[in-house]
Design a binder for these strands. Sequence first.
DNA 1: TGTTTTTTTTGATAAATATCAAAAAAGGTT
DNA 2: AACCTTTTTTGATATTTATCAAAAAAAACA
Lengths: 189, 189
Amino acid sequence: MSTVVIDIIKSISNISDAAESELTSMIGSKFVQRGTYLLKEGETCSHIYFMQFGFAHQFKWKKDQKISNFFWTNNDFVTHMISFLTQTPCSENIEVLKDSKIYALSYADLQYMYKTYPEFNHFGRLMLEKYFLEIAGLGELSKITPAQKRYEKLVEQRPNLLQLATSGQIASYLNMSQETLSRIRAKRP
Amino acid sequence: MSTVVIDIIKSISNISDAAESELTSMIGSKFVQRGTYLLKEGETCSHIYFMQFGFAHQFKWKKDQKISNFFWTNNDFVTHMISFLTQTPCSENIEVLKDSKIYALSYADLQYMYKTYPEFNHFGRLMLEKYFLEIAGLGELSKITPAQKRYEKLVEQRPNLLQLATSGQIASYLNMSQETLSRIRAKRP
DNA sequence: TGTTTTTTTTGATAAATATCAAAAAAGGTT
DNA sequence: AACCTTTTTTGATATTTATCAAAAAAAACA
C-alpha cells in the first residue's frame, strides 16, 4: 500500500521496505478545509506536513489584521520549522486557505525514524534543503524599497502567488497597506 | 590529528574513523583578515565554512552602500545556503569583518562524504538545522514597523550584534537610514 | 598634543506610505 | 434582476522615514 507521500519520499531518497512500512503506518493523510488551523500561536509545532495540493499561509496577528509571512502550495513541506526543530512555542499561526490534502508526520515519529533507520537522515537532509529553498529569499524581499519594487519582485519571483492569495494577503506579505498595493497595480496595467 | 572543527563535527554526530580521516584531509583551516571576501556576487558559492572565531556578514550593494543581510560569528556555519545547495550564482557577497579563523569544506567534497559515508547525512541534517536556526527570524524582523520596534527587537534578540557591528551595518540590517538609527538611540539611553 | 579623518548626531526638508473615509466595483444570495 | 455583503479603488490628510547638509564627537595618526 503506497500513498502519494511515500512515493514522494522515495523519489527524494531510497528507503528500506521496513522503513517504508513503518512510515506508512505513521503518516496520516487528511483533507482539511479552508479555515483550518494547522498551528496556533503559543503552541509548539508538533508535525511536519506535506501538502499534496492546496494552499496555506503562516501569519501573525497585528491589531486585528493577519500579516502573512509565507505561503505554501502543492508539493510543499509545511511546518513552522523553528518551533518544530526546537520544540518550543511559536508566535505564528498556520492556516489552510483553500481546501487541501495534507499528510502529517509527528516530531516524535520523525525522531524515531531517524534513530531506527539511520539512512533516513538522507531524506531528512533533503527535506530540510527543500524546505529551505521554499522559504528562501523572504528576508531579502521585504527589504526592497520602495513598495513598488517589492511588488515587481514578487511578480517576477512568485507569479503563481498572485492567483492564489487575496490582495489583502499579498499586501500584508509585501509589508504595505492594501491601498498602497491597489495604487501600485493601478499604475501599470 | 584532530582539529577544532573535527571535534565540533564529532560533537554533532558520530562519524567513523575512516570518515574522520578523509574529512581531516579535506577541511582546510585558515586565518582570514578583515576585508576578505568569502563570496562575491555573481559567483556560485563553492564552500561551506565553519567560523571558529571572528565576524562576517552577507551584504548586497545598493548604490554605493553595503546593505547587510546576515551576520555570523563564533561557531557559526557560514555559507550562502541557496547558492551552495543549488550550485547557482548568487547576488550577495560574504565579507569577513574581523580577523577570523575559518575552516572550509567544498561542495564537491561534502557530496563525496554524503555518498561515501551515508551516515554522514546525519551530520548534514544537523548542520542544516543549525544553519537554519542561525538565520531564522530574519524575514520577521524586517517586517516590524515602526523602525523603533525593529531596533528594540534586535536589542532583545541579538544583543551581541550591537557590540560587533558598526552602527551603519546595524542600520542597513534593520532597513533604516543611519540617521534614523541614531535618533532612535538618542531617545532612550 | 594637535591635526586630520571618520563616524555620529542634529536640523530642515522632501518623499513615501499609512490611515481614515467614502465611492465604486465585484461577488453572493434570494 | 434586485439586494446585500465584501472587496477594491480613490481621495485627502497625517505620519513616518529618507535625504541632504552641517555640526559635533570620536577615532586615527603624526
